[in-house]
């Protein structure tokens, strides 16, 4: 277990310490937080744009981050020689592979949790804007305290990371990603706690988060399949061909998924199930979650097998 934790923790730290990760975290969260600004485009339902922005951020930025991190963490280790130094010790190759993918999945989960909190906050802000607009007429520019919280915490995270780097030599990108992710639940909590004076018909940030959780979990599992797939490919292929195959697999999973090998993203994209105030019950989310989990296990086993037969020179 100690070996597994050491490997997984290092993979997570390396994934989060990449400059690309900080850019993706910031872009994803900024996209979600700024959605309420476009309050004239609600697609028939207050907060729907913000919600779809949140899911899209996880799907697009999450997929880029996760596949890049998996290819980088496993592929680069094998090419650079750190894997040789590790596997020369009493570390089974299957453990090495599974732990590395787990570390990347942990980093992806952190991103997903941050986006989920940001989406709840953003959707609430959109709903507040819509309510205030209907009460006070056109031209209302108030989106409640939430927008300030969300944007403020995001900017403060970067400022704190810069200060930590300046004064304590802490790694900037790693600190920025962690603070960005940890800042989102705080922003949500603060908006929830200080929500005095909000329109009476506003359902509240907490129930919004609970409603978003099941489809977010399902989508996270769908994205995680590609992390395991990218990791498995990285055990045998160099960066460019592995990236090309993962990109093709992502496109295929939208257009023509291969049963028992690739997820049908349409089954994991459940944002439409929340339309009109509906809730996705866990009893419906769980089968999609289970199907994704089986595909993750399949690719983990494949990757472990490929690595165990590989010569590491």
């Amino acid at each position: 277990m100690r070996r597994f934790l050491a490997l997984a923790r290092t993979a997570a730290v390396e994934s989060l310490a990449e400059p690309l990760t900080a850019v993706l975290f910031l872009s994803g969260l900024a996209t979600v937080h700024l959605a309420p600004v476009f309050h004239y485009h609600q697609f028939g339902e207050a907060g729907r744009l913000a919600r779809e922005c949140g899911f899209s951020a996880l799907l697009v930025f999450g997929l880029i981050f996760a596949t890049a991190a998996a290819l980088h963490t496993i592929g680069r280790e094998l090419e650079s020689g750190t894997a040789a130094a590790t596997l020369a010790l009493a570390v089974p190759r299957s453990l090495f592979f599974v732990a590395k993918v787990t570390g990347v999945l942990a980093a992806l989960s952190l991103f997903a949790a941050a986006v989920a909190c940001a989406t709840a906050l953003s959707q609430g802000n959109s709903a507040i804007a819509s309510l205030l607009q209907s009460e006070h007429g056109e031209g209302t520019q108030s989106w409640g305290p939430g927008l300030a919280c969300g944007v403020g915490f995001t900017l403060v995270a970067f400022a704190l990371a810069a200060a930590a780097n300046r004064f304590w030599r802490m790694r900037f990108c790693l600190s920025a990603c962690l603070l960005l992710a940890l800042g989102q639940p705080f922003a949500l909590l603060l908006a929830w706690v200080t929500g005095i004076g909000l329109p009476a018909s506003f359902v509240g940030f907490g129930p919004l988060f609970a409603r978003l959780l099941p489809p977010f979990v399902v989508l996270l599992v769908g994205c995680s399949v590609f992390v395991a797939l990218a990791g498995a490919l990285a055990t045998r292929l160099k960066g460019a061909p592995a990236t090309a195959i993962v990109a093709l697999a992502i496109v295929a999973s939208f257009v023509r998924p291969i049963r028992f090998l690739l997820p049908d993203i349409n089954h994991f994209w459940l944002v439409d199930r929340l339309a009109g105030g509906a809730v996705l019950p866990w009893s419906e989310a769980c089968p999609a979650f289970g199907a994704g989990l089986l595909l993750i296990i399949l690719w983990l086993l494949t990757g472990a097998l490929l690595l165990s037969r590989r010569e590491i020179s």
Binding site: R2, R3, L5, A6, L7, T10, V13, E14, A17, S80, G81, T82, A84, A85, T86, A88, L89, A90, V91, R171, L174
Partner: peptide, 27 residues
């Protein structure tokens, strides 16, 4: 214990974290 030809180390880890990482791998 193995010292590879080039010092293959994780560039993002500190010296302390690197040695602790290998300590963890050694159980």
């Amino acid at each position: 214990g193995y010292l590879p030809e080039l010092s293959y180390l994780h560039p993002f880890l500190t010296a302390r974290e690197t040695v602790r990482y290998y300590a963890g791998l050694s159980g």
